[in-house]
Design a protein around this nucleic acid. Structure first.
Lengths: 123, 123
DNA sequence: AAAGTATATTGATGTCTGTCAATATAAGAA
DNA sequence: TTCTTATATTGACAGACATCAATATACTTT
């Protein structure tokens, strides 16, 4: 029988902690999906990778172009690219020896939409 | 003296790996700042907190309203609220025994802008 | 002052993950 | 085939962090 204290004047004496007024809108599994995507962006190296790839005039880059500017080892760069790829944020295409990565703009846009106030449910 | 292999026809024999065409646009410290913010969102519990607070009719909630729907212990919820608060995504206000948290919409908007293709520099 | 409630902090623990060296795989060149 | 280069994978390690129980702090009420 608890009540939101904010809606009571001082003459009321109920002071129990108030229960949630609304059910959770974002379901746990949806939150987990969204969080997984944000966690992918939660790494400086991966943000730099996205930014650097997007900054190329062709909008794409191969691994060997990315190792030096990032200042990380090639395996580490490959690792981050894989994480981005598996998150759907990058697509890749092999051309001979090289593998070119480019952004998936719709995926980034989806993330922006997920941030639309007040944090919509869907990606 | 290496050259972008994609811009050469098959008669050329240079096959060295191609250097970066552009300097990195996103500086390491800027990337670190952005990543730190995204990492805050990279946690299901924190996304649910933001979503739940935003879903309240007054746009705010006290800790005791959040513990039960999240299914986490009160210290854990307090911890996540602190992380969100220190990231500037939540503001808090004490009213007697209770402390009410609400979103900082400009901060969320800043994150959305940071995601604007192709990942702008500034927050 | 004493008791009760709301929230924060501390300390410990287990899991996740970023990093690299070493190695493997794949493709082209000789 | 052999060699070289580009990229991926493996294994190991260290640091970050989510979580909780226990405890501390802050406020209100009696």
């Amino acid at each position: 029988m608890s009540v939101n204290i904010r809606n009571m004047n001082s003459s009321t004496s109920i002071s129990t902690c108030c229960p949630p007024l609304l059910q959770a809108v974002l379901q746990p599994d949806e939150a987990a999906q969204m969080a997984a995507l944000f966690r992918v962006l939660g790494e400086p190296a991966r943000l730099q990778l996205l930014n650097f790839i997007a900054a190329q005039s062709e909008g794409e880059a191969c691994v060997c172009q990315l190792v030096e500017p990032l200042g990380l080892s090639q395996p580490t760069v490959s690792h981050h690219l894989k994480v981005l790829y598996e998150a759907g944020l990058l697509e890749k295409e092999r051309r001979g020896t090289w593998i070119y990565y480019k952004l998936v703009p719709e995926r980034i846009e989806a993330l922006r939409n997920a941030l639309a106030f007040p944090l919509q449910k869907r990606l």
